[in-house]
Design a protein around this nucleic acid. Structure first.
Length: 431
RNA sequence: GUGAGUGUAGCUCAGUUGGUAGAGUCCCAGAUUGUGGCUCUGGUUGCCGUGGGUUCAAGUCCCAUCACUCACCCCA
């Protein structure tokens, strides 16, 4: 029987993988401008880390984790998100002193045992950023601005930013109570099956339901705005005014709720209507208190996660790098020499492939064409005997001329790939 | 976990009321003795997802199973 990949796990062949490396490279570049350093944490953690940080009652912890015992019976879990691991690492070895701010970004695979669909795999990849030690709303704003800068940098427009405040430890319980009271006085038979359950488990989620009937029924539900405390309001107002001043458009969505328990105050999401039913491209918010709840110091934090598969769906194409040459061999005597010539050219910073076996001019040029190389370098019997290489421009009319191997190497030594182009110009023919 | 849809050539897909499998593309060769792309000509490729059933006969009908896709739930 043929062995096949595990459901929800995918192979990324070069064309697709290129999008991921491109996204990661751009993110690193942009984030570093904001003073972020990369933090690489393990894929595997003790299960209780996620249970404690994400929340025992969340779907992620309740039914979506890849959890299994190790050889000594200890429960381990493949990380379903990055923040928990970053917090653990920060507490363990972060070398943090009160008053300091730490900024970490992290990249890599996450694992959730869900049914795969468009924009959702069991192994998926996230770009993460966290700011630790800053309680100021300026940190929230800068983080959102950085995320937007990154998305713009990779050429993604037509995204919307949604913003909300979830309140803090002080005011959220009051709001939750008000919501519960509202539902208690409501004819719940009109709600969808899921929402009737949510009323009990997590009333905030009912506000996030997509079913029109539910939206209608909850239209007059209390909003956080009426219950938010003064501190939270001031914090939120500063975030909004900074975004306004930076000319970042956003939509206030009082129904935006985050799926992980640790979020409070600022919550945001970047969405797209072009990637199927899963519209969230990135999401994040503030999580003051998380570090402390994991046994660390009382350090505030803000962060976001960005789904790379979903970005890749939106990324029509990323910059393609074309090779400089394809070294074609027409005479079996020349294959070894060709390989060494290619090696020399690469030593001068050029990129390109060399044929391992001799072939007809037609088939060799076909390969050169397919490789996308700007220039074909051809060694046939004639060239081999004279120590020459035919340099052919694969664009336009296909200008070509023969130069010696030594000259080719010296030209590329001085001017790199430009040297090859110059060598192909017919008007400066050597002979 | 729930629902719907789809499995036929490397890829995208046709395949009639059941009658022994097709197109496009890709790849290879030639037209053009050592010149790619465009055009034309020729050529290769199939456990019709798997297992059972009905039938003289199944790619086609029935059952099961596996895989994939989309959606729900939930999330990035």
């Amino acid at each position: 029987m043929k062995i096949q990949k595990i459901k929800g796990f995918t192979d990324l062949f070069p064309d697709e993988a290129a999008k991921f490396t491109f996204l990661e490279a751009r993110a690193r570049e942009v984030f570093f401008r904001y003073g972020f350093g990369e933090l690489r944490t393990p894929l595997l953690e003790h299960t209780e880390l996620f249970a404690k940080s994400i929340g025992e009652d969340t779907d992620v912890v309740g039914k979506e984790m890849f959890t299994f015992p190790d050889r000594k019976g200890r429960l381990l879990t493949l990380r379903p998100e990055a923040t928990a691991g970053v917090m653990r690492a920060f507490i363990e070895g972060g070398d943090w002193q009160p008053g300091q701010v730490r900024k970490y970004c992290t990249f890599g695979p996450m694992f959730r045992y869900e049914r795969p669909q468009k924009g959702r795999q069991r192994q998926f990849h996230q770009i993460n950023a966290e700011i630790l030690g800053a309680h100021e709303p300026q940190a929230d704003a800068e983080l959102i601005l950085m995320l937007c800068a990154f998305l713009q940098d990779v050429g993604l427009t037509r995204l919307s930013v949604e913003l909300n405040s979830l309140g803090c430890r002080e005011c959220r319980p009051l709001f939750r109570k008000a919501l519960s009271d509202f539902f208690a006085g409501l004819d719940q038979t009109g709600l969808c099956e899921d929402c009737r359950r949510r009323v009990e488990t997590n009333p905030l989620r009912v506000l996030d339901c997509k079913v029109p009937a539910c939206r209608e029924l909850t239209r007059d539900a209390p909003t956080l705005g009426a219950h938010i405390c003064g501190c939270c309001r001031e914090h939120f107002d500063t975030v909004k005014s900074l975004l306004d001043a930076a000319k970042v458009a956003y939509t206030l969505n009082p129904r935006l709720v985050r799926g992980l328990d640790y979020y409070q105050r600022t919550a945001f999401e970047i969405t797209s209507g072009e990637i199927g039913a899963q519209t969230a491209v990135a999401g994040g918010g503030r999580y003051d208190g998380l570090v402390q709840s994991l046994g660390g110091p009382d350090v505030p934090g803000v962060g976001f996660a960005c789904g790379m598969e979903r970005l890749a769906l939106l990324l029509a194409q990323c910059p393609q790098y074309r090779p400089d040459f394809y070294l074609a061999v027409l005479d079996g005597r020349a294959v070894d020499q060709a390989l060494l010539l290619a090696q020399g050219l690469r030593g001068h910073g050029l990129s390109g492939e060399v044929s391992y076996a001799a072939g007809s001019m037609k088939s060799q040029l076909r390969r050169a064409n397919k490789s996308g190389a700007r220039l074909a370098l051809i060694i046939g019997s004639e060239e081999y005997d004279k120590g020459l290489v035919l340099v052919k421009d694969m664009e336009g009319a296909g200008d070509q001329r023969a130069v010696s191997r030594e000259r080719l190497l010296s030209m590329t030594a001085v001017s790199g790939a430009e040297g090859l182009l110059v060598a192909a110009l017919p008007e400066r023919s050597e002979e």
